[in-house]
Amino acid sequence: MADELDLLRRANPVPSDDGRFHDRPLDQHAERRLNQLLHSGRPRRLRRWVLSVGTAAAVGVTALTLLLSGSATTPAVAAPRPLQIESGSTPVPLGRIAARAAADRSQRLRQGTHTQTWSLSMTAGPGAGRAVTVPEERVVRWQPDGSSTELVVATDPRRPGRPVITGADPVPRTVEDGHVLSRRTFPPSWSDAPPQATPPRDTGRLRAYLDELDPTGPLSTSQLLDAVSELLDNWTLGSRENAAVVRLLADAKGLRPAGAVTDRLGRPGQAYVYEDTAHAVRRMLILNPVTGAVLGLEDTVTKDDAEFGVRAGDVMSYSAWMR
Protein backbone atom coordinates (compact mmCIF):
# COMPACT_ATOMS: atom_id res chain seq x y z
CA MET A 1 0.00 0.00 0.00
CA ALA A 2 2.87 2.40 0.73
CA ASP A 3 4.08 2.12 -2.90
CA GLU A 4 0.66 2.91 -4.30
CA LEU A 5 0.19 5.90 -1.99
CA ASP A 6 3.60 7.18 -2.97
CA LEU A 7 2.61 6.88 -6.64
CA LEU A 8 -0.53 8.94 -6.07
CA ARG A 9 1.38 11.58 -4.10
CA ARG A 10 3.93 11.96 -6.91
CA ALA A 11 1.19 12.14 -9.55
CA ASN A 12 -0.57 14.80 -7.44
CA PRO A 13 -3.81 14.75 -9.48
CA VAL A 14 -5.37 17.56 -7.43
CA PRO A 15 -2.58 19.98 -6.45
CA SER A 16 -3.36 22.19 -3.49
CA ASP A 17 -2.08 25.31 -5.25
CA ASP A 18 -4.19 24.79 -8.38
CA GLY A 19 -6.71 27.62 -8.65
CA ARG A 20 -9.18 25.43 -10.55
CA PHE A 21 -10.10 23.63 -7.33
CA HIS A 22 -10.64 26.70 -5.16
CA ASP A 23 -14.07 27.97 -4.13
CA ARG A 24 -15.95 25.04 -5.64
CA PRO A 25 -16.35 21.27 -5.24
CA LEU A 26 -14.03 18.96 -7.15
CA ASP A 27 -15.31 18.02 -10.59
CA GLN A 28 -14.70 15.37 -13.24
CA HIS A 29 -11.28 16.84 -14.04
CA ALA A 30 -9.90 15.39 -10.81
CA GLU A 31 -11.08 11.99 -11.94
CA ARG A 32 -9.46 12.57 -15.33
CA ARG A 33 -6.13 13.31 -13.59
CA LEU A 34 -6.37 10.03 -11.71
CA ASN A 35 -7.27 8.14 -14.88
CA GLN A 36 -4.21 9.60 -16.60
CA LEU A 37 -2.14 7.40 -14.31
CA LEU A 38 -3.37 4.48 -16.41
CA HIS A 39 -1.36 5.79 -19.34
CA SER A 40 1.92 6.15 -17.49
CA GLY A 41 3.35 2.79 -18.57
CA ARG A 42 3.51 1.45 -15.01
CA PRO A 43 3.19 -2.24 -14.20
CA ARG A 44 -0.20 -3.74 -15.05
CA ARG A 45 -1.06 -4.77 -11.47
CA LEU A 46 -0.47 -1.27 -10.12
CA ARG A 47 -2.37 0.35 -12.98
CA ARG A 48 -5.39 -1.80 -12.19
CA TRP A 49 -5.28 -0.78 -8.52
CA VAL A 50 -5.20 2.86 -9.57
CA LEU A 51 -8.21 2.25 -11.81
CA SER A 52 -10.23 1.10 -8.82
CA VAL A 53 -9.13 4.25 -6.97
CA GLY A 54 -10.29 6.35 -9.92
CA THR A 55 -13.67 4.61 -9.85
CA ALA A 56 -14.05 5.33 -6.15
CA ALA A 57 -13.05 8.95 -6.75
CA ALA A 58 -15.78 9.25 -9.37
CA VAL A 59 -18.36 8.29 -6.77
CA GLY A 60 -17.03 10.74 -4.20
CA VAL A 61 -16.47 13.62 -6.60
CA THR A 62 -19.67 13.59 -8.67
CA ALA A 63 -22.11 11.59 -6.51
CA LEU A 64 -23.68 10.50 -9.79
CA THR A 65 -21.90 7.19 -10.40
CA LEU A 66 -23.76 3.89 -10.33
CA LEU A 67 -21.56 0.97 -9.29
CA LEU A 68 -22.86 -2.49 -10.14
CA SER A 69 -20.71 -5.37 -8.95
CA GLY A 70 -20.95 -9.11 -8.69
CA SER A 71 -20.45 -11.80 -11.32
CA ALA A 72 -24.19 -12.22 -11.91
CA THR A 73 -24.93 -8.52 -12.30
CA THR A 74 -26.19 -7.20 -15.63
CA PRO A 75 -25.45 -3.55 -16.31
CA ALA A 76 -28.67 -1.56 -16.03
CA VAL A 77 -27.60 0.77 -18.83
CA ALA A 78 -26.09 -1.28 -21.64
CA ALA A 79 -22.91 -0.04 -23.26
CA PRO A 80 -23.58 1.65 -26.61
CA ARG A 81 -22.17 0.23 -29.81
CA PRO A 82 -19.07 1.90 -31.26
CA LEU A 83 -19.71 4.58 -33.86
CA GLN A 84 -19.30 3.30 -37.39
CA ILE A 85 -17.50 5.00 -40.25
CA GLU A 86 -19.82 5.49 -43.22
CA SER A 87 -19.00 2.96 -45.92
CA GLY A 88 -17.41 4.49 -48.98
CA SER A 89 -16.86 7.90 -47.37
CA THR A 90 -13.69 9.82 -48.19
CA PRO A 91 -11.39 10.67 -45.27
CA VAL A 92 -10.59 14.38 -45.05
CA PRO A 93 -7.05 15.32 -43.93
CA LEU A 94 -6.81 17.37 -40.76
CA GLY A 95 -4.91 20.07 -42.64
CA ARG A 96 -7.92 20.63 -44.88
CA ILE A 97 -10.23 20.89 -41.87
CA ALA A 98 -7.81 23.39 -40.30
CA ALA A 99 -7.97 25.55 -43.44
CA ARG A 100 -11.78 25.47 -43.39
CA ALA A 101 -11.82 26.33 -39.70
CA ALA A 102 -9.48 29.29 -40.27
CA ALA A 103 -11.88 30.66 -42.88
CA ASP A 104 -14.93 30.28 -40.64
CA ARG A 105 -16.12 33.27 -38.61
CA SER A 106 -19.47 31.94 -37.39
CA GLN A 107 -18.59 31.03 -33.79
CA ARG A 108 -17.48 33.05 -30.78
CA LEU A 109 -15.56 31.96 -27.70
CA ARG A 110 -17.71 31.52 -24.60
CA GLN A 111 -16.77 30.41 -21.11
CA GLY A 112 -18.93 27.49 -20.09
CA THR A 113 -19.88 24.22 -21.73
CA HIS A 114 -22.74 21.98 -22.81
CA THR A 115 -21.85 18.27 -22.88
CA GLN A 116 -23.27 14.77 -22.84
CA THR A 117 -21.10 12.03 -21.32
CA TRP A 118 -21.17 8.30 -20.62
CA SER A 119 -18.48 5.94 -19.36
CA LEU A 120 -17.80 2.37 -18.33
CA SER A 121 -15.85 1.89 -15.09
CA MET A 122 -14.21 -1.38 -14.13
CA THR A 123 -12.76 -3.11 -11.10
CA ALA A 124 -10.55 -6.18 -10.99
CA GLY A 125 -10.47 -9.09 -8.58
CA PRO A 126 -12.64 -12.07 -7.58
CA GLY A 127 -16.32 -11.45 -8.23
CA ALA A 128 -15.69 -8.03 -9.74
CA GLY A 129 -18.08 -6.83 -12.39
CA ARG A 130 -18.64 -3.94 -14.69
CA ALA A 131 -20.08 -0.58 -13.76
CA VAL A 132 -21.63 2.23 -15.71
CA THR A 133 -22.01 5.90 -14.98
CA VAL A 134 -25.30 7.64 -15.50
CA PRO A 135 -25.62 9.07 -19.03
CA GLU A 136 -25.79 12.75 -18.22
CA GLU A 137 -26.04 16.14 -19.82
CA ARG A 138 -24.19 19.04 -18.22
CA VAL A 139 -24.59 22.76 -18.85
CA VAL A 140 -22.24 25.30 -17.23
CA ARG A 141 -22.81 29.01 -17.69
CA TRP A 142 -20.66 31.88 -16.39
CA GLN A 143 -21.92 35.33 -15.46
CA PRO A 144 -20.11 38.70 -15.93
CA ASP A 145 -19.39 38.90 -12.18
CA GLY A 146 -17.40 35.62 -12.26
CA SER A 147 -20.13 33.48 -10.72
CA SER A 148 -21.36 30.36 -12.52
CA THR A 149 -24.17 27.85 -12.57
CA GLU A 150 -24.10 24.13 -13.33
CA LEU A 151 -27.11 22.00 -14.28
CA VAL A 152 -26.75 18.21 -14.60
CA VAL A 153 -29.63 16.09 -15.89
CA ALA A 154 -30.02 12.39 -16.59
CA THR A 155 -30.20 11.58 -20.28
CA ASP A 156 -29.61 8.76 -22.71
CA PRO A 157 -29.13 9.98 -26.29
CA ARG A 158 -29.75 6.42 -27.55
CA ARG A 159 -33.30 6.38 -26.13
CA PRO A 160 -34.65 9.90 -25.62
CA GLY A 161 -37.41 10.07 -23.04
CA ARG A 162 -36.67 6.61 -21.60
CA PRO A 163 -35.66 6.00 -17.96
CA VAL A 164 -31.98 5.91 -17.03
CA ILE A 165 -30.21 4.95 -13.83
CA THR A 166 -29.03 6.99 -10.87
CA GLY A 167 -26.73 5.89 -8.09
CA ALA A 168 -27.64 8.80 -5.82
CA ASP A 169 -29.68 6.58 -3.50
CA PRO A 170 -28.41 3.60 -1.47
CA VAL A 171 -30.39 1.38 -3.84
CA PRO A 172 -30.00 2.20 -7.56
CA ARG A 173 -33.27 3.24 -9.18
CA THR A 174 -34.52 4.53 -12.50
CA VAL A 175 -35.12 8.20 -13.19
CA GLU A 176 -36.76 9.78 -16.20
CA ASP A 177 -34.73 11.28 -19.00
CA GLY A 178 -34.32 14.97 -18.22
CA HIS A 179 -34.53 14.42 -14.44
CA VAL A 180 -32.38 17.01 -12.65
CA LEU A 181 -29.50 15.28 -10.88
CA SER A 182 -27.91 18.46 -9.55
CA ARG A 183 -28.30 22.22 -9.84
CA ARG A 184 -25.56 24.36 -8.32
CA THR A 185 -24.52 28.00 -8.21
CA PHE A 186 -20.90 28.95 -7.53
CA PRO A 187 -19.67 32.30 -6.17
CA PRO A 188 -17.38 34.55 -8.23
CA SER A 189 -14.07 32.90 -8.99
CA TRP A 190 -11.16 33.95 -11.21
CA SER A 191 -7.93 32.24 -12.18
CA ASP A 192 -5.18 32.95 -14.68
CA ALA A 193 -4.30 29.25 -14.90
CA PRO A 194 -5.72 26.82 -17.48
CA PRO A 195 -8.43 25.73 -17.96
CA GLN A 196 -10.12 28.77 -16.39
CA ALA A 197 -7.77 31.17 -18.16
CA THR A 198 -8.93 32.30 -21.60
CA PRO A 199 -7.54 29.89 -24.25
CA PRO A 200 -5.23 31.51 -26.82
CA ARG A 201 -5.94 31.64 -30.54
CA ASP A 202 -2.52 30.80 -31.99
CA THR A 203 -1.09 27.32 -32.13
CA GLY A 204 2.14 27.89 -30.19
CA ARG A 205 0.49 29.56 -27.21
CA LEU A 206 -2.34 27.02 -27.25
CA ARG A 207 0.20 24.18 -27.06
CA ALA A 208 1.76 25.81 -23.98
CA TYR A 209 -1.72 26.30 -22.50
CA LEU A 210 -2.58 22.61 -22.95
CA ASP A 211 0.83 21.56 -21.61
CA GLU A 212 -0.11 23.26 -18.32
CA LEU A 213 -3.08 20.91 -17.98
CA ASP A 214 -0.72 17.94 -17.81
CA PRO A 215 2.63 18.98 -16.31
CA THR A 216 4.12 15.46 -16.56
CA GLY A 217 6.06 16.36 -19.71
CA PRO A 218 5.58 16.77 -23.47
CA LEU A 219 2.07 15.66 -24.41
CA SER A 220 1.67 12.41 -26.28
CA THR A 221 -1.18 12.17 -28.79
CA SER A 222 -3.42 10.50 -26.23
CA GLN A 223 -2.56 13.13 -23.62
CA LEU A 224 -3.23 15.87 -26.16
CA LEU A 225 -6.72 14.44 -26.74
CA ASP A 226 -7.28 14.43 -22.96
CA ALA A 227 -6.11 18.02 -22.69
CA VAL A 228 -8.41 19.14 -25.51
CA SER A 229 -11.28 17.33 -23.75
CA GLU A 230 -10.57 19.21 -20.54
CA LEU A 231 -10.46 22.50 -22.44
CA LEU A 232 -13.87 21.73 -23.99
CA ASP A 233 -15.28 20.83 -20.57
CA ASN A 234 -14.68 24.46 -19.60
CA TRP A 235 -14.98 26.53 -22.80
CA THR A 236 -17.14 26.60 -25.91
CA LEU A 237 -14.57 27.55 -28.52
CA GLY A 238 -14.87 30.23 -31.16
CA SER A 239 -13.83 29.88 -34.80
CA ARG A 240 -10.23 31.03 -34.28
CA GLU A 241 -9.74 28.75 -31.26
CA ASN A 242 -11.18 25.82 -33.23
CA ALA A 243 -8.67 26.47 -36.01
CA ALA A 244 -5.78 26.49 -33.52
CA VAL A 245 -6.94 23.19 -31.98
CA VAL A 246 -7.21 21.49 -35.38
CA ARG A 247 -3.75 22.73 -36.42
CA LEU A 248 -2.33 21.17 -33.25
CA LEU A 249 -4.15 17.92 -33.94
CA ALA A 250 -2.85 17.90 -37.51
CA ASP A 251 0.69 17.70 -36.11
CA ALA A 252 -0.14 14.89 -33.66
CA LYS A 253 1.50 11.57 -34.47
CA GLY A 254 -0.74 8.61 -35.23
CA LEU A 255 -4.04 10.51 -35.51
CA ARG A 256 -5.31 9.38 -38.91
CA PRO A 257 -8.39 10.42 -40.92
CA ALA A 258 -10.97 7.62 -41.05
CA GLY A 259 -13.98 9.00 -42.94
CA ALA A 260 -17.44 10.40 -42.36
CA VAL A 261 -19.45 9.46 -39.27
CA THR A 262 -22.72 10.46 -37.64
CA ASP A 263 -22.20 11.16 -33.96
CA ARG A 264 -24.47 10.16 -31.08
CA LEU A 265 -26.46 13.37 -31.39
CA GLY A 266 -27.13 12.80 -35.07
CA ARG A 267 -24.60 15.36 -36.30
CA PRO A 268 -22.48 14.72 -39.42
CA GLY A 269 -18.76 14.73 -38.76
CA GLN A 270 -15.35 13.56 -39.85
CA ALA A 271 -13.64 10.92 -37.70
CA TYR A 272 -9.97 10.77 -36.79
CA VAL A 273 -8.65 7.65 -35.07
CA TYR A 274 -5.70 7.08 -32.77
CA GLU A 275 -4.75 3.49 -31.91
CA ASP A 276 -3.30 3.40 -28.41
CA THR A 277 -1.82 -0.09 -28.78
CA ALA A 278 0.03 0.11 -25.47
CA HIS A 279 -3.29 0.25 -23.61
CA ALA A 280 -5.53 -1.54 -26.13
CA VAL A 281 -7.77 1.49 -26.69
CA ARG A 282 -9.04 3.02 -29.92
CA ARG A 283 -9.74 6.74 -29.63
CA MET A 284 -12.06 8.35 -32.17
CA LEU A 285 -12.16 12.13 -32.40
CA ILE A 286 -15.09 13.62 -34.34
CA LEU A 287 -14.85 17.08 -35.92
CA ASN A 288 -17.39 19.31 -37.61
CA PRO A 289 -16.15 19.15 -41.23
CA VAL A 290 -16.92 22.83 -41.88
CA THR A 291 -16.06 24.71 -38.68
CA GLY A 292 -13.45 22.32 -37.23
CA ALA A 293 -15.28 22.25 -33.88
CA VAL A 294 -14.75 19.10 -31.83
CA LEU A 295 -18.07 17.26 -31.68
CA GLY A 296 -17.07 14.19 -29.69
CA LEU A 297 -14.48 11.74 -28.44
CA GLU A 298 -15.09 8.00 -28.09
CA ASP A 299 -12.79 5.39 -26.50
CA THR A 300 -13.24 1.73 -27.48
CA VAL A 301 -11.51 -1.38 -26.12
CA THR A 302 -9.48 -3.23 -28.76
CA LYS A 303 -8.52 -6.34 -26.77
CA ASP A 304 -10.47 -8.73 -24.55
CA ASP A 305 -9.68 -8.56 -20.84
CA ALA A 306 -11.38 -11.34 -18.87
CA GLU A 307 -10.36 -9.94 -15.50
CA PHE A 308 -12.27 -6.73 -16.13
CA GLY A 309 -15.01 -8.44 -18.12
CA VAL A 310 -14.53 -6.29 -21.22
CA ARG A 311 -14.36 -7.42 -24.82
CA ALA A 312 -12.83 -5.96 -27.92
CA GLY A 313 -15.32 -3.48 -29.34
CA ASP A 314 -16.76 -2.37 -25.98
CA VAL A 315 -17.16 1.39 -25.69
CA MET A 316 -15.33 2.62 -22.59
CA SER A 317 -16.52 6.23 -22.75
CA TYR A 318 -17.75 9.01 -24.95
CA SER A 319 -18.21 12.73 -24.69
CA ALA A 320 -20.27 14.92 -27.00
CA TRP A 321 -19.87 18.69 -26.95
CA MET A 322 -22.57 21.13 -28.05
CA ARG A 323 -22.90 24.89 -28.35
Rank of each mutant, 00 (worst) to 15 (best):
D6S: 06
L8N: 08
L8G: 08
R9H: 10
A11Y: 11
V14A: 13
S16L: 12
D17V: 03
D18M: 04
G19V: 01
G19W: 02
F21E: 09
H22A: 07
D23T: 13
P25R: 03
L26S: 11
D27S: 01
H29L: 10
L34A: 10
L34C: 08
L34E: 09
N35Q: 03
L38E: 09
R42T: 14
R42D: 13
R42A: 12
P43F: 12
L46Q: 06
R47G: 06
G54M: 09
T55V: 02
V59K: 02
G60V: 14
V61Y: 03
L64E: 15
G70Y: 01
S71N: 07
A72D: 13
T74A: 12
T74W: 07
A78E: 15
P80H: 02
L83D: 06
I85G: 05
E86L: 11
S87H: 13
T90G: 11
P91Y: 04
V92H: 08
G95F: 04
I97C: 03
I97S: 01
A99T: 07
R100P: 00
R100M: 00
R100G: 00
A103S: 12
Q107R: 11
R108S: 11
L109C: 06
Q111Y: 09
T115C: 14
T117S: 15
S119A: 12
S121Y: 15
M122N: 15
T123V: 10
T123S: 12
A124R: 05
P126V: 11
G127A: 04
G129D: 09
G129F: 11
A131L: 04
V132E: 01
V134Q: 08
V134N: 05
E136S: 09
R138H: 09
R138D: 11
V140W: 07
R141A: 06
G146A: 00
S147G: 02
S148K: 00
T149P: 02
E150S: 07
V152T: 13
A154L: 07
R158D: 10
P163W: 05
P163F: 05
P163T: 06
V164H: 07
I165F: 09
G167D: 14
A168K: 14
A168H: 10
P170C: 05
P172R: 10
E176W: 11
D177W: 11
H179A: 15
V180Y: 14
L181A: 01
L181Q: 00
S182P: 02
T185P: 06
T185K: 14
S189A: 07
S189V: 05
P194Q: 10
P199F: 14
P200V: 08
R201K: 14
G204C: 08
L206M: 10
D211A: 09
P215I: 02
P215V: 03
P215K: 00
T216M: 11
L219I: 05
L225M: 01
V228L: 05
E230H: 04
L232T: 04
L232P: 04
N234R: 06
S239G: 03
R240I: 02
R240W: 03
E241T: 00
E241W: 00
E241V: 00
L248N: 06
D251W: 00
A252M: 03
K253T: 08
G254N: 09
Y272L: 04
T277M: 08
H279I: 03
V281F: 15
V281K: 15
R282W: 02
R283W: 04
L287W: 09
N288K: 11
P289Q: 08
V290F: 15
G296S: 13
E298K: 03
T302H: 05
D305F: 14
E307K: 09
F308Y: 15
G309I: 14
R311D: 06
R323A: 01
